[in-house]
């Protein structure tokens, strides 16, 4: 039987480094996903995920278990996501951002290639990349709310705890984030494969 988060936290506080590694293994996928969906690329996501765990390890002595460990970890994660954006604001983006950054000419040529892909898997991947690209264009607070709700599946109450705001604010940010994303999808329908264009 695996130990609960709380048990592992107690062990970490008692100086057992291996217990923290167990927490890392438990949460690495979820936090890497959050970081990836927030930053939009694997390199930054990997750096960010590491920072999250290091910060959590350093802050562990001050963790009073007033919230669950999961909520506390996501609080650290979302704080670092905000800082990450400030830190990397001058850094050029890579991958998909480079292709779509100029909306004239080059984008059309790329899109033509995408739509001609015969593999459904590839189409799906391309649609994912297009959604990711538009997600990254959302203001950060809307983006965090949307990621936490629609990708990570947190409840409004949990999101309010993580983002340290009221439930009403969560509701408002989610609504605005979704509407903004919907407008972007409509305005960039050509980014998507025929299957999603019909949606």
């Amino acid at each position: 039987m695996s130990l609960s988060d709380e048990d592992l936290v107690e062990r970490v506080k008692a100086g057992e480094a291996a217990a923290f590694e167990a927490l890392v293994i438990r949460y690495q996928k979820a936090l890497f996903n959050l970081a990836y969906r927030y930053t939009g690329n694997r390199e930054d996501a990997s750096d960010l995920a590491q920072e999250i765990f290091i910060r959590a390890y350093q802050s562990m002595p001050g963790f009073r278990q007033e919230a669950t460990f999961r909520t506390w970890l996501y609080q650290i994660a979302t704080n670092l996501c905000r800082d990450n954006r400030r830190r990397r604001s001058g850094r050029p983006s890579i991958s998909l951002d480079e292709v779509i950054a100029t909306e004239q000419g080059e984008v059309d040529r790329e899109l033509e290639d995408w739509s001609q892909s015969p593999e459904a898997l590839v189409e799906s991947r391309l649609d994912s990349e297009a959604i990711q690209k538009l997600l990254n264009e959302l203001p950060r607070e809307y983006r965090l709310a949307v990621i936490l709700r629609d990708i990570e599946g947190f409840t409004y109450d949990e999101i309010a705890s993580i983002l340290r705001c009221s439930k009403g604010t969560v509701r408002s940010r989610l609504n605005r984030g979704r509407h903004l994303l919907q407008e972007k999808i409509t305005a960039n329908r050509e980014l998507f494969t025929p299957f999603l264009r019909l949606m």
Partner: peptide, 29 residues
């Protein structure tokens, strides 16, 4: 319209962390 957006986000695939993440973290810790 909102349902479409939500469903598109929900269908985003889960990404796998790089295999070296835990080992790198161990070193940094």
């Amino acid at each position: 319209g909102l349902q479409v957006v939500r469903d598109m986000l929900r269908t985003l695939p889960s990404v796998t962390p790089p295999p070296h993440l835990v080992a790198t973290l161990q070193g940094r810790m």
